[in-house]
Design a protein around this nucleic acid. Structure first.
Lengths: 207, 207
DNA sequence: TCATCCACCTAACATCGTTAAATCACACAC
DNA sequence: GTGTGTGATTTAACGATGTTAGGTGGATGA
């Protein structure tokens, strides 16, 4: 008799309903403005019901981040078939930008706020976006594509990552400030990626 | 009789005490964790007293930001005497990094969070850090130092700004995450600035 | 002397995340 | 069928937050 299984399934269903509601409300209203009571009301439950499925609001956020990191990682691994590691680097950068444009609020949670510790998931390579970037950089390093003074894969990965993150996060945080004439995000991001790649490539390796 | 002046001065004094307390508590505990009640207790006032000097917590934050932007702008204008605009660009970037290292919490408020509208101050050039960056880039542009496809001063300013902001903000937000082996901030930032500048300079203009 | 003013305080409100304890529905043992 | 759990959900509340209405008290100025 599968009553236990059904119970488990039902439990999972309401858990998913919570996640789904939280996901959309975080994305549209922002994380701070989304209250536990509001999430509960949305799925026609009582606020306390959520605490039966998640320890607290942070746990809810972390779980959502988990899924988002996995999605981002999957986007990256689609670039696996690109032979040239430098070209792959460029494409990773643009995929990152697209992710941010389509999920600005989640981007903010994932990369712009101090998340509560949040240890690494199960190192599943499909979800490990940073690992994929690191591997790509290492490949370029092994092929001798970069300038001789750049030998640290982590440093190179962090350089490329942060240079796209910079323009994304500034525009997310400051897009409404009138004292900067913002340019198109995709265009500026591409210019940054191109400039940075030019700047890290060994002489004679320019595309 | 200067009683009116004295009253005004006294008012200003407690106002400054509030600002000073808030400044330090924001810097050490973080902005969210610093409560209005705590600020009040620190200066031995009642929470409501603060509201006699500032409309609300946001107004307090904005006022502090104001001062911080001015400080940053003053740091920048110290580079005025550097002749070469490209070298000045590099030095601006490093000054920006130093500012962030010494004021991480304020940096977070100034550049990593959506501040409530916060219109531009009085365009005082001494406080307008972005304006100073923009002027430097324009100077390099006029001197024909950059690649021919890069003609927009705002785009160039945003490229250089965001590439240093990227590594700073990532390390501030994610420095405790164990899934990235962070490198020294100053070193990585310098590598990024150098790479980016190499990547935007016209051929034959390399330092 | 007395009304005024203004900095400041007392007391409270609404809302937040969160928790202890009660309730309710339903599967199971006898 | 009747207790007996068990586990999902609710009721009611707690403490903390930002904030506000209304009062207090002491110096000012006529």
């Amino acid at each position: 008799m599968g009553t236990k299984e059904r119970r488990e399934r039902e439990r999972q269903e309401t858990r998913d309903k919570i996640l789904e509601a939280a996901r959309e409300m975080f994305a549209t209203q922002g994380i701070e403005a989304t209250t536990m009571r509001a999430i509960a009301q949305r799925i026609e439950y009582t606020p306390t019901a959520i605490y039966h499925h998640f320890k607290d609001k942070d746990a809810l956020i972390i779980e959502l981040c988990h899924g988002d990191f996995a999605r981002l990682g999957r986007q990256f691994t689609q670039m696996e078939r690109i032979e040239d590691p430098v070209e792959r680097l460029r494409r990773i950068g643009m995929a990152y930008v697209e992710f941010a444009i389509h999920n600005p609020h989640h981007y903010q949670i994932m990369f712009m706020t101090r998340t509560p510790v949040h240890e690494h998931p199960d190192k599943n390579p499909e979800e490990d976006a940073y690992g994929f970037l690191l591997a790509t950089v290492q490949e370029g390093l092994d092929a001798g594509r970069f300038r001789p003074e750049l030998t640290d894969a982590h440093e190179l990965a962090q350089m490329t990552w942060s240079s796209v993150h910079g323009i994304i996060s500034l525009q997310i945080a400051k897009c409404h400030d009138p004292w900067v004439e913002w340019r198109d995000l995709r265009k500026t991001a591409l210019a940054i990626i191109d400039a940075l790649i030019r700047g890290i490539l060994r002489e004679g390796q320019q595309a």
